[in-house]
Write a protein that binds this DNA or RNA. Structure first.
Lengths: 240, 240
DNA sequence: ACCTTTATGTTCGTTACCGCACATACATTC
DNA sequence: GAATGTATGTGCGGTAACGAACATAAAGGT
């Protein structure tokens, strides 16, 4: 192997050489199949994860079983911020939304690195702030925007974190993420399809017209994207 | 003066004596009148604020002018986390929701303290995680719960941060916070009033039956409160 | 006491989404 | 290629919240 390298994760790639080299030996490549639950609500965190090709969804599940996605983590980020924030755990659940790969690191090793009070700490905190923006914007979006707008936002967030323009995901699961009815997603997706923006069938959604989706999305997508770009400006190249 | 002391803010009160004493001379008591804008979206942060009797609302305002509250900050917390998170600014606006007092500290002084990598850093990060929980739960609540449930949650969050059981706030402003119509708040408040849970008139809302409100609220209130209690367990006493 | 302003109450038609039921169609397996 | 399971399409009544218009009522100034 392989075409896998930790630098495919933007946070890892953004680390100075010293820190990167220190962590490298401890990074373990893991496969993340669709639907796998990486963290359960309130559970203990044995590892943190740096996705490379996978996308993780952070979900809040309510007592009555209904749920909503509050943020996504892909190759731009890290799963497990509550570890270094000091809480050890969170009330959210982390589920693999798009199958792929990532690297994991034992919790204690990340904590140790964080406590060195160096560039790793600063990078992780800036990432956390970007994640906070995403959550806050999700709250606003849930309040004010239509299912169709939110679907556009969701599709854009997903393809940004994938190399391909095709998403493997049923409408049923998208509905769970957005916290709406499956029929609502069917209807919105149908409109987008008829408008020539996407093409989908049985769990495969292909984005045909990205700009069209952006135009149809609410502003929430762009606000979040701009804030990520601002806080985590583009990542240096690293010799393979 | 006075009956004002920085220890009325729970975060300041939770600091070890060394750190508290170091900051004390730089803490400046400020009055916070209703409606004052402490931070504008994207603006520069000259100070951070530790409310004692005031409550600050964190709002996201959309392009079309509609808005929604994503979190509140009272005497349990600090306003200005993006400063130490490294972003310097956020896309949210901070408005005084309930008039009162607080202490402010020059941004650089807080940064310096944060960078000592001591108990202040750890405390602020734990607080930030609690705030994240509040935002995430707000997102879910916006998705799934009725205006009446959200109003109960909002009232409870407010009186938790006030000494009194009376809130000075018009239904119009509450509607802005919740991101709903004023009429919706009128209707929900009317129900609560007829149920004997609250008593209000022209900008004065008095909570009569706190337990009744909790029962009528969605679970979101309790989830957030429990998480705050878990992350920021009760604060030591400090000799006046 | 009057007038003005501001806060709250009420109504009405409209809309987006819900919950449910069921039809269709593709995919997989035997 | 028949059978089964899964994904998607569609229609229907119900409801919560919306937008707008307007009525009432309390507070405050002169």
């Amino acid at each position: 192997m392989s075409n896998h390298t930790p630098t495919q994760n933007h946070l890892l790639n953004a680390l100075p050489k010293t820190e990167y080299d220190r962590l490298l030996a401890h990074l373990e490549l893991v496969n993340m199949p669709l639907g796998e639950v990486l963290y359960e609500s309130g559970g203990h965190l044995k590892h943190v994860y740096f996705p490379t090709s996978a996308i993780i969804s952070l979900l809040y599940v309510m007592e009555d079983g209904s749920s909503a996605e509050i943020a996504v983590v892909g190759n731009e980020g890290i799963l497990g911020i509550s570890l270094f924030m000091g809480g050890e755990t969170t009330p959210s659940r982390a589920v693999v939304q798009s199958a792929g790969y990532g690297y994991r690191l034992k919790s204690q090793l990340l904590k140790d690195e964080f406590n060195r009070n160096g560039p790793v700490l600063r990078l992780l905190l800036r990432y956390t702030q970007a994640l906070i923006t995403q959550m806050a914007q999700t709250a606003v979006c849930n309040r004010h925007h239509s299912v169709e707008q939110q679907l556009c936002r969701w599709l854009l967030l997903s393809i940004d974190r994938l190399a391909k323009d095709e998403i493997i995901m049923t409408q049923e699961l998208i509905a769970n993420m957005l916290g709406v009815r499956r029929e609502g997603v069917t209807e919105a997706a149908g409109k987008l399809q008829r408008a020539g923006l996407i093409d989908y069938s049985r769990g495969h959604i292909k984005v045909i017209n990205r700009l069209g989706l952006e135009a149809r999305s609410c502003e929430c997508y762009r606000v979040v994207k701009d804030e990520f770009d601002r806080l985590l400006p583009s990542l240096k190249e690293r010799a393979e």
